Simulated scan of single mutants.
Amino acid sequence: MTAITRATTAVLVATAVLAALAGCSLLNPELPRDDAGQVLEPSVIGSTDLLVGDCFSFVEGSNLSEAEVTPCATEHTHIVIGKGALAKTEIGEAGGLQNAVSSSCSETFSAFKETVAEGIRPEQEFIISECSTDDGTAMTDYACIATDAPTPEA
């Protein structure tokens, strides 16, 4: 197992366990955002409340359950590049949770890699949370995230 695979697995497993305690949050905190949806000032939120396009760093000591979301032009370590949900059957058909989420995020991550500067090698990671829909169906929400660096303002 490569170091990247071990690191990705560690993030996936640790986040899945911790985020499962939070459940499915349909209510995102009200953060000040610009017209494009980008946050205007740093704020600490639950990592499962991040939105696509959010730039963030995990809060040290939070066991990956909290993130400081920041404007993308400021210092951060990750960006959310996609989100989705998987039913238990989809996870089984893919051969397990890591395979299902990795497959679901692969196109998004490939597209993201095309946008980074030459010589930069982002790593793909995931945030996972278990929840139930209104009808009681068990679902796994996921966020596709990538390592990232600040984007200079235009």
Rank of each mutant, 00 (worst) to 15 (best):
T74A: 12
A67K: 03
D35E: 14
V52W: 03
R33E: 00
I91N: 00
F56L: 04
P42H: 08
I81H: 01
V80S: 03
G46W: 12
G37H: 05
S65T: 13
A94M: 04
P71H: 09
G95Y: 05
C55Y: 03
N99M: 08
N99K: 11
K88G: 10
L50A: 05
I91K: 02
G61C: 04
G82N: 02
E41G: 10
V59G: 02
S43C: 07
G96A: 01
G96I: 06
A36S: 10
E93M: 12
D54W: 06
A85G: 07
G96M: 04
I81S: 03
V39Q: 01
S25T: 10
E66C: 13
L40I: 08
E41K: 15
E68I: 09
A67M: 03
E75H: 11
V69K: 01
S25G: 09
H76I: 00
Q98F: 14
A100W: 00
D49I: 06
N28D: 11
N99A: 14
A16T: 14
G96D: 02
C55P: 01
G82Y: 00
L26W: 10
P71I: 00
L27G: 12
T15M: 11
P32F: 05
A36Q: 11
H78E: 07
S65A: 07
E93W: 12
L50I: 01
V80Q: 04
T74Y: 08
G82F: 02
T48E: 01
S47A: 12
A73Y: 15
E90C: 08
H76P: 00
E30A: 15
V80Y: 03
I81C: 07
S57V: 05
A16F: 09
L21R: 13
E90L: 08
F58M: 05
T74V: 06
G96W: 01
V39D: 02
T15G: 11
T89C: 11
N63E: 02
E66I: 13
L26V: 06
G23H: 06
S102F: 08
H78Y: 14
T74W: 02
A67R: 02
S43G: 12
I79V: 14
E90D: 12
G53T: 09
E30L: 12
A16D: 09
S65Y: 03
D35H: 10
D54N: 10
E60H: 13
G96R: 07
E93I: 08
L51Y: 10
T15S: 13
N99V: 01
D54R: 06
T15L: 11
P42T: 07
T74L: 12
